[in-house]
Computed example of a mutant assay.
Amino acid sequence: MPTNGDLLARRYRRLLFCHPRAYRRARADEMVGVLLDAAPAGRTRPTAREAANLIRHGLRCRLGRPASRTVAAWATLAAVVCGLFSAAVAARAAWETARPLPGRAETAALVAAALPGHGLGKVDPAPPLFSFYTRPLTVRQLDNLLLGDGGEYQQGSVVAEVIAAPATSAEETLALAQRRLRETGWQVYEPTVARHSGCADKFCTRTTVTTETTVPARRGDTTLTLQVRTASADTPQLWLDLRRTTPPAVLPAGVVGGLLGAGLGWLVFGWASRRTETPHGGRGAVSVSYALTMALWWAPVLLTVPNLLRHHLDEPHPTWHPLWEWLGQPAGSLLFLAGTATALLALALAALPRREPLPTAAVD
């Protein structure tokens, strides 16, 4: 039966796996011995402080370059962006747990409940949850998606035309819809109004003002957007847009995927960093490739986040845009692919043989 000391030593050694293999071979016995000597009698588990310190120093040790004050910052930059991209991939996979979009029968029931007295006109066939040019994405379209047309990859929705009741004004229609939606359990958001001027005839001798009022609402896993368009004294035109909200599985999947991606990014950066410690013939080229990778990967993120955040603040959103859109993907996939190419180049250069073996450096 193992003694308390044996259990504690085994658990200390597990925590030392955060350190590089060569470092463990050279220092593990010494470190475990010091930790056991400092531990009081009867302890069987490392304290939280000891565990945190061993993990922190182990991760720092994986970066090498003990004299560098900035290597941890560069590693963090790489780990964060790797975590964001892997979280986006995991989130997209988790979106497959969402229910299919509503069909005509469910759409007709929603119209009857929200707008009694109105009819249902044309209903676009339910597309997939995410579509490319309104159609399911296929392998043959990946080149178009990744090489310039990524902005056309969007969340699918059911668009239905609503036939207005006779002699009903836009104001009456909007008031009825908001009241009925609340009565049937929908959370109704503040409507937004947009006005556009246009030509009333082909010679543009007269102009007309079109008013578009949008009413978003949410109930359960469905979002509803009612758009009412009026031009002068014409009968209002109505459209209904139905989508699915973010499935519950997306958040935990994104968190797990993000943590795994960030950890892998840190480890790969640390491997390349230790490989290219002086002397190494490819050190300069690896540094340049790394800088290009970070610039190409972070550029779409830094450009997209402020614009998308402003978009969310300017108008109500029953559900937020998917994570990958916040990262500028797949609209900015060209930059991502170029960054991936420079990252692979950096790793290939780091794998080149070093001029001479380096002794394992201790970390303060």
Rank of each mutant, 00 (worst) to 15 (best):
N53I: 11
L54N: 01
R244F: 05
R27G: 03
G42R: 06
T3K: 09
R56K: 11
A113S: 15
R104W: 00
A346C: 03
T293G: 12
A160N: 02
V250N: 00
T211A: 03
R283T: 00
M1W: 08
F85K: 01
H280L: 14
A231W: 04
S273Q: 11
E212D: 13
G103M: 04
L267K: 01
V32F: 01
L77A: 09
L344I: 14
W74A: 15
V71C: 04
A114R: 03
A262R: 02
L226D: 00
N53R: 10
G339M: 09
H19Q: 07
R219S: 13
T44L: 12
S169I: 09
A88S: 15
T214K: 12
A109Q: 06
A233I: 11
T192P: 05
F269L: 14
A194F: 05
R99A: 09
V250W: 00
A112N: 04
R218G: 00
T214Q: 03
L352R: 14
A200V: 01
R229E: 10
E190W: 00
A108Q: 11
L142P: 00
L8I: 03
T211F: 12
W271S: 02
R13V: 13
S232W: 05
Q227I: 11
A22Q: 10
V288N: 08
L146Y: 07
K122Q: 08
L54A: 02
W320C: 02
S287E: 14
P300A: 10
P236W: 03
N307G: 11
